[in-house]
């Protein structure tokens, strides 16, 4: 009897390990899902899946300088914003610091605003070529191979998160290709995320920013959001953004 139960235990353990190894949600019967607790970094040759949804939480009160470090880290990582021949208005900007002051109380605070990685992204809706798209794991990107530079997405974005490159560039970062006539925005450091690393801005302000899987109830970001809450900018638009703020 004990031998049988031991074998059963071993079998069960093997079965559970197998599920964990698959690092994905597995359907055992229609409507029944077994989900792995902690999302392991995906294998290099595996495609991204919708079992994870990447998100960021910005705790504005913990930012050391209202977001300057975030902007600097992003600039350094992707090399945007120092176009030699573009005017100030034409400069690309993946993330910017915004200061908000309430008219009556004069209470003000600052926050970094970038692509909010909407679940129902307006930029994706309007794109005539399919260049604007949402990856399975929730990261909104521009496929610059398909972008024709029409800037429709720039008009559609309620967060003013996108910009167009106005001049020919040289010596871009190998992991972050950028070129004239294409639109670009925060890509949640997709090259780092795919390697299991955190975005550059999160590494620059680790006490104020949390990056993680919103689908996973046990991830740092989900737990913090559940406990303290996190607002969306323009929540009234119902875009279900992947970037949330605490303290706005």
């Amino acid at each position: 009897m004990s031998k049988i139960s031991h074998t059963a235990d071993q079998y069960r353990r093997k079965f559970l390990t197998g599920i964990a190894g698959a690092a994905a949600a597995i359907t055992i019967a229609p409507g029944v899902l077994l989900r792995q607790v902690e999302a392991a970094p995906k294998a290099a040759d595996a495609a991204v899946t919708d079992s994870v949804r990447w998100g960021m939480l910005v705790i504005t009160s913990k930012l050391t300088d209202g977001g300057d470090k975030v902007v600097q880290a992003c600039k350094k990582e992707h090399g945007w914003g120092d176009e030699k021949h573009s005017s100030t208005e034409q400069q690309t900007q993946w993330v910017r610091k915004v200061k908000v002051t309430e008219k009556l109380t004069k209470h003000s605070f600052e926050l970094p605003v970038m692509c909010q990685h909407c679940e129902t992204a307006p930029c994706e809706d309007v794109c005539p070529t399919g260049a604007s798209f949402k990856r399975a794991d929730g990261i909104v990107l521009v496929d610059k191979h398909l972008c024709i530079g029409c800037r429709y997405c720039m008009m559609a974005c309620p967060y003013k998160a996108r910009s167009l490159v106005h001049e020919a560039l040289q010596d871009q970062k190998a992991y972050s290709p950028r070129g004239m006539g294409t639109v670009e925005s925060c890509n949640m450091c997709v090259h780092r995320v795919d390697e299991g690393k955190k975005p550059a801005c999160v590494e620059a302000e680790p006490q104020a920013m949390i990056f993680g899987d919103l689908n996973d109830a046990d991830s740092d970001i989900s737990k913090t959001l559940q406990k303290f809450g996190g607002k969306q900018i323009r929540a009234d638009l119902g875009l279900n953004t992947g970037v949330r703020y605490h303290g706005i």
């Binding site: 595996a46 495609a47 991204v48 990856r135 794991d137 191979h145 190998a174 995320v193 795919d194």
Partner: peptide
Amino acid sequence: KRDRTVHDGIRTKDHSFKECIN
């Protein structure tokens, strides 16, 4: 490979443009 990389996040060295240059 470019579509696999941009859309599926597969960044292996096989058929990689970056590797040609490197």
